[in-house]
Design a binder for these strands. Structure first.
Lengths: 343, 343
DNA sequence: TTGAAAGCGCTAACAG
DNA sequence: CTGTTAGCGCTTTCAA
């Protein structure tokens, strides 16, 4: 944030009048569109300071055809992963002089479509979208020409910049961690009911591949689907797994919230984490550093994801970037904590 | 969200031309500023539909002097309380056809001042502020004339609408709950170091009054101040309380995050919740329904707070509300869970 | 290096 | 009930 009070009514004209120059000159002092003589510049600057002038953004936007606003559309704010991502994006946007507007899709396909197809076009210069339900085809068919950057593991193979960690490798690492601890009945919680959707797919695929690599058989009954991706879903999924004839001895959760829900259920059922069941999450939200037990998890570099997404988008908006769309994979690490290592 | 694609370049003029009417008539069909004949209306509407027209907001805003955007400035998104509040506010703003912009102050006094003094004035019609550090005087001296609505327990006695639950009564209820369970050494975690600030003040005051009402002595060493209001602060505060010669047997936390931090410390130190130490939080964030143990807490009606704040603000913005500022106290309840009742 | 002026798209006052 | 038009504040082209 950088300040400056704007008494209503102080316009370019007022400054021009006060400084005894034309509108164009004042505009040039402000925007540097063409050079201005040093003496003139000083006089104009003084008038600006004295009157406390701030450009009227609506007018500027009308004229320029751009608004200085970009949107970040995420499924929900209640998932702290997105809250943290949004924080990073907002900081970066602000740094570039842009305002970032948050939109929620509730992970609802129709809302994702609406956003992608230009719901906010009148107000935004560009869009960062973290889709949940949107498929490749829908993105390809999108009807808006507003620059778009995708984040998250949902959609691949579309002509837009895409920022997401290597979900396959990350899932591998998570499962491998459990395998290394000697676990053999490793369950996956948080597969999407509609199994051929991409996002769960990648993490699920990583899970399967890692099992195979470890010589463990894939057991479909150990994959708990959930309608959403919150704590309640994790709790329910865990209940179902515990009802199995042979319950799991480890859980790889689609995300941290699901892991927290699962751990809650385990606690209620009198099972110890990690002694009876080890748990690994995905996202590394702050909660996992204070939960009982603390949560082992995949930690994507959220700061970098947010920053890169905003940078790419703004570069496209301003026409500075015209390369073909790029696929960027920010770093991630596995953070081992009590839910697998014990205390 | 309600949609409509806006191919760039479809203007009022285009519609007017297509429908064979004047600009004004099209505008009237859209805005209902004055009546339009039914036949004409139909023709215009058809042109609008066919061309997929959406008004250019920048132009409208320039003309109207309003932007249709309101801001909600909160300390941080990482506290799920604010995330939930923001969700409610966004829904309500959308319902009124407004866009809600989120701003973060980091609980930093300067940023709160900046926001309050009109940092976003060029872009917003009104502001909802949840101050942490801002004092009465700063609000009274504010230099912006943008309509303002305050939420939260921070500032009283200023000429703006204020939406906040009765913090005094809520704190009373929380402490009374602990007293009723037979606890006698009840600590308060999350007092602000600068003790004469209002927000912690009310909850702290409620705490003291409830102790007095219960015939319990106030022990200053049982008040743990914290620099911020996050999990880490709660964990640190708890450490300090446990180092006392006579540690507490109950905790009333300024908010849920602090309570989670405190419970984490208790767990690490091998103390049982609630057997050894009972814990009550404040905010009722979802996390507390899945934590181990689940958290007893004060549950403010966040939906109502968000809704009322937005409604009041928009009414002021649109000049529909010119009454003197009002103080509104939405309902709250105490939700007893395992952290005081046990399992 | 500077000025004059057109015009972005819209709303609302004025005129019929 | 409908049309004409001024002008919101700014950027940028054309002219000097």
């Amino acid at each position: 944030m950088s300040g400056g009070i704007a008494p209503v009514g102080v316009s370019l004209k007022a400054i021009a009048h006060r400084a005894g120059v034309s509108l164009a000159t004042v505009s040039n002092v402000i925007n540097g569109y063409r050079p201005v003589g040093e003496a003139t510049r000083q006089r104009v600057q003084q008038a600006i300071d004295e009157l406390g002038y701030t450009p009227n953004l609506s007018a500027r936007h009308l004229r320029r055809g751009r608004t200085g606003i970009i949107a970040l559309a995420i499924p929900e704010l209640n998932n702290p992963y997105f809250a943290e991502l949004a924080g990073a994006a907002i900081r970066e946007a602000t740094r570039h002089g842009y305002t970032l507007l948050l939109d929620y899709t509730d992970g609802d396909r129709n809302k994702e479509l609406l956003v992608s197809d230009g719901f906010r076009d009148q107000i935004i210069d560009g869009l960062i979208l973290s889709p949940v339900q949107l498929d490749r085809q829908a993105v390809l068919n999108r009807t808006s020409s507003t620059p778009l950057v995708l984040v998250g593991e949902s959609v691949y193979g579309v002509p837009y910049d895409h920022i997401a960690i290597d979900n396959l490798a990350a899932s591998h690492m998570a499962v491998q961690h459990l395998v290394a601890l000697g676990r053999t009945r490793i369950a996956f919680v948080g597969a999407h009911p509609d199994a051929n959707r991409e996002p769960a797919h990648l993490r699920l695929r990583g899970y399967r591949e890692a099992l195979a690599a470890a010589g463990l058989a894939f057991d479909e009954s150990l994959v708990a689907t959930t309608p959403h991706f919150g704590r309640g879903d994790g709790a329910d999924g865990m209940e179902r797994l515990l009802a199995l004839p042979q319950p799991p001895d480890a859980i790889f959760a689609y995300n941290d919230l699901i892991a927290f829900g699962a751990m809650r259920t385990l606690s209620v059922r009198g099972l110890r984490v990690p002694e009876d069941v080890a748990v690994v999450g995905f996202d590394d939200v702050e909660e996992g550093r204070f939960s009982n037990p603390t949560l082992t998890t995949i930690s994507p570099d959220k700061e970098t994801i947010g920053r890169l997404a905003v940078d790419s988008l703004i570069a496209r908006v301003e026409g500075r970037l015209t390369d073909p769309p790029r696929e960027v994979q920010p770093p991630f690490v596995l953070v081992p904590r009590e839910s697998t290592l014990g205390r």
